[in-house]
Design a binder for these strands. Sequence first.
DNA 1: TATGAATGAGAGTTCATTCAT
DNA 2: GATGAATGAACTCTCATTCAT
Lengths: 216, 216, 216, 216
Amino acid sequence: MQDAALQLFAAKGFFATGIREIADRVGVTTAALYHYMGSKDELLIEIMASSMTQLIRTAEESVATADEPAAQLATLVRAHVGYHALDPLRSMVTDDELRALSGQPRARIMKLRDSYEQLWAQTLDHGLASGVFHVADAKITRLALLEMCNGVDRWYSAAGRMGPGEVADLFADLALAMVDARKDGQPIRLSNLGCTSAEQVLKIARRALQEIGYSD
Amino acid sequence: MQDAALQLFAAKGFFATGIREIADRVGVTTAALYHYMGSKDELLIEIMASSMTQLIRTAEESVATADEPAAQLATLVRAHVGYHALDPLRSMVTDDELRALSGQPRARIMKLRDSYEQLWAQTLDHGLASGVFHVADAKITRLALLEMCNGVDRWYSAAGRMGPGEVADLFADLALAMVDARKDGQPIRLSNLGCTSAEQVLKIARRALQEIGYSD
Amino acid sequence: MQDAALQLFAAKGFFATGIREIADRVGVTTAALYHYMGSKDELLIEIMASSMTQLIRTAEESVATADEPAAQLATLVRAHVGYHALDPLRSMVTDDELRALSGQPRARIMKLRDSYEQLWAQTLDHGLASGVFHVADAKITRLALLEMCNGVDRWYSAAGRMGPGEVADLFADLALAMVDARKDGQPIRLSNLGCTSAEQVLKIARRALQEIGYSD
Amino acid sequence: MQDAALQLFAAKGFFATGIREIADRVGVTTAALYHYMGSKDELLIEIMASSMTQLIRTAEESVATADEPAAQLATLVRAHVGYHALDPLRSMVTDDELRALSGQPRARIMKLRDSYEQLWAQTLDHGLASGVFHVADAKITRLALLEMCNGVDRWYSAAGRMGPGEVADLFADLALAMVDARKDGQPIRLSNLGCTSAEQVLKIARRALQEIGYSD
DNA sequence: TATGAATGAGAGTTCATTCAT
DNA sequence: GATGAATGAACTCTCATTCAT
């Protein structure tokens, strides 16, 4: 049910999706749907809240494996991109349907989103404070990074040329370039970062997603 | 009417906006609305098509003022970011509501979008072919650049700390870093690019927007 | 529309009446109904509030034509019974469907009802204070009187043997007996009360009802 | 289960009460409910039929203890009022929800109600024939008496100032006044009626109610 | 006994749109 | 040009009820 809703919400948007369509896809009547869910709204709320919660968990667990700013940023990017590439539909819905909510549920999701963005802010601040990153404007750079990474769910396809890990690595390098990460005057890139592979982060992301219904 | 629709579509989304709301905001009856417009769908189509058309025009006119790859990319970014920052609502609707359309109208907008992205592809290819840009993967880099720049309309506010020109310049530098633009081993940035200021591009964008209802 | 609703609410009750039935009886679609009404609830609220308001007006205007306790009580009973007999459906709905409401609308109707019952309390108190009425318990007597008179709308039929005026007179005499109205030891009845006929009160009630849709 | 239904039907009405609410209050699932009851309709029918049956029994047994018209009327009123005051919820449902039924069940309850009203008609006729009662219109007086007494369940509360017996006595006196009961020119009231106390009738009513689930 | 799952029907309401005036 | 009235279709959601387990 959550799966069917996810696919439809992602394809057509929350408002354009009728519960009859969800029921049809599940193969039951609309009345049966209401045995398992509270309301169409709650269905969306649960998808978004669980997705944000697991994204935060993924990011926190991943970043904890790195101990210096450049590696932390690379890991954060890998976690974000990996999470979005592994389950692009879930991430699209979570990113795009916030305006379908209002009141308390909206506030709840926004709070989760804010706390996630704090992770990015901290990581960037850390790198700037230690002189590793060099940016013209911290806030603008953070927004640019986040939107660039968020965009992944809009175009990534598992059927494509690249796996989540490859894309994650490419994005990590782009991010390092954007913050002009340097050590002893030399640009820091994944290749000279002595940091673990993307696979480790993907494993964390995959496990987090499995707890909320993701499979394969 | 287009203005009212634009604001509501941007704030609540196409499906969540009723034509009664649009009529209320304009101060007429819904029946009167149908004297000026064809249908709710057409209202959206016109907004999106005109926006895309003028974005393409802005980009083409702007890029024509630059004669080498790095300057062309910087100009393209400035045009895109400037256009999105000058009229974020229009850009948001154009970016986000494609799925509200189907059939021929959808194809029409997608074609415009594709032809716009071709401009980016050409610019990147040009820079790569001439050895100025150095990227691991041309397509991924293009997507990252586009999503980063598209994101501007999601957070930019005219009431904020920065004007469209400043943001455009910051993004142009980020883009040059992402493609690792170099000449004689030295990184190319706006500061050493001997290219005109963002204002010239903004003027082009502003004029293009004015033709489709933008003011001030 | 109010008429159709009134008949159905009276016959089947508010909850058992579907708006599709109302629409059918009016001869339009349900959507058309919503041009004229706010909601099914509001339809009921308006019926009840207007009915109570006009009942209060009828009672107040009528009582003002009498100047001593026995005549005032007789007039109050005539007004109440006349009002209920003239439009039994409206009165039934107003009496019986209060529990279909909740919140503010419910409070609003209850307030009107309370202020109406105050008229009865005052009239009784007046008669008791001046030694004309003799009852064992003022409150119980008031409740007995009110329920007796309220009951009229449950059995009265315009097709029956008696007109509203005749019933009103019979009830007025019953009421005088219930409060044991006496003057100089002699029972007071309509016949020795030198008070105007029921027709005058009916005229007031009819005019009040006409303002809220009653005809004939 | 009957108890839970009774309380809910009385508080919200038959149609406004869902069987899920009944099940919740009983503490079982709705499916379990259907092991004990036939349908929601039958639940109501049983409540109403048993209530009417026991009311008739109470009235018949009570009246049989009196041997002359005035005492019989007083006893009938006491029985009716006592029954309604002892179990107001049951009486409210029985009085108010007839329109929720149709077809055969409806006819069944109406027959019981008619036969109950026959008791009143007989008692009144008896008193009129023997010259003890003096009324302007027998039918109207009967209806007035019945509605006055029926009203008790709408306002009576066990938590109030008076017990069922006291209210029953007050109503008996009101009824005697309404029919202008006289003997040798002197008004007949409870005080000069040499008839047993209300307690005896209440005992009968209580026993009758206990057979259909009433307690305390 | 008792339940979780499921259903068909129907509830009230809103939608974009049309059209006679 | 502009409106008030009206519509058919669809909406989310709840209802009393059934039945395999």
